[in-house]
């Protein structure tokens, strides 16, 4: 039903167009409109959360960059930004390196207790965040890591590893084992084989796993709320308290910046996916 057949009846035609241009259009509008709406609002020259008459009239006076200025000059937001860019990369590094090794191990043909190990490694993704945060808060405060950068980094790394495992394992599924055998038959040792043959092929999976781990940490707020002190507040932490206490339009500016970051990440991921499929000899779809 990708297109309407020429013999379609009037009823069928009406349904076809209603479905496509009314129902689906409405749902897509529902999906995307909230995100699109906040972008112009963030450029408002007023502290309101709705379109002012000047903005609707496209009067330049209705628009300003003052909320962005707030964001870049406020010490609270800058501190939060710095913390976010300190914690997320550190957590990503741990999650990606350990996760990639484990994914390679898991993809070997004979792994004892594979199901159990997989269940344990994936569990941080399944357990609701509030429970992970509660458990980590209790445990980390016992060992004195509560309110420390290290505690949050370790917690975020643990939350990010399942994504690395899943993406890297997915790339390894299509991996042709005869390639490593070919390398070995020509005298390469396992380490050389890994770096020269296997690594280039799985690198897209590793990078997209790392992106997932990064966004997990970058976007995570529950664990930070419980485990962090005021010193470790991150962007989401600052947004959350801002939204809960008194909502200031600066949040919309931050939100717009974060939407821009997601668009960049999404594009990178899509390019990586295509590259990975090309490398493995599949036609990108």
């Amino acid at each position: 039903m990708s297109a309407l057949p020429p013999y379609a009846s009037t009823g069928q035609r009406i349904w076809f167009y209603t479905f496509r241009y009314v129902i689906c259009a409405f749902i897509l509008f529902f999906l995307i409109a909230p995100i699109i709406t906040i972008i112009p609002l963030s450029f408002s020259s007023q502290d309101f959360f709705t379109f002012t008459p000047e903005m609707l009239a496209l009067d330049p006076a209705g628009y300003s960059l003052k909320h962005y200025e707030d964001f870049f000059t406020s010490s609270d937001w800058q501190k939060a930004l710095k913390n976010s860019f300190l914690i997320a990369p550190a957590a990503t590094l741990i999650a990606t390196s350990l996760g990639t090794l484990a994914a390679i191990g898991l993809s070997q043909s004979h792994v004892p207790y594979r199901r159990t190990i997989m269940a344990i490694l994936i569990s941080p993704m399944i357990v609701p965040l509030i429970i992970s945060a509660a458990g980590m808060f209790f445990f980390y405060s016992r060992i004195g890591l509560q309110g420390e950068y290290l505690g949050i980094i370790l917690a975020h790394a643990a939350l990010g590893t399942p994504f690395v495992i899943i993406t890297v394992t997915a790339t390894l599924v299509g991996f042709d084992r005869s390639l490593t055998r070919a390398a070995a038959s020509m005298g390469a040792d396992p380490v050389t084989t890994f770096f020269k043959v296997q690594m280039p092929l799985i690198i897209p999976g590793v990078v997209s796993g790392a992106l997932f781990a990064f966004i997990t940490s970058f976007d995570e707020v529950v664990v930070v709320l419980f485990m962090g002190s005021a010193r470790q507040k991150t962007l989401p932490w600052q947004m959350f308290t801002g939204l809960r206490e008194q909502i200031s339009p600066t949040i919309l500016a931050v939100a717009t910046i974060m939407v821009a970051i997601s668009i960049v990440l999404l594009t990178v991921l899509e390019l990586l996916r295509r590259r990975s499929e090309r490398l493995r000899g599949l036609t990108p779809s």
Binding site: V221, M239, L252, M258, V259, S262
Partner: peptide, 12 residues
């Protein structure tokens, strides 16, 4: 998109 971005959008 960040969960908080979407939540703040709805709040607005």
């Amino acid at each position: 998109t960040s969960l908080l971005v979407r939540t703040s959008a709805w709040k607005v």
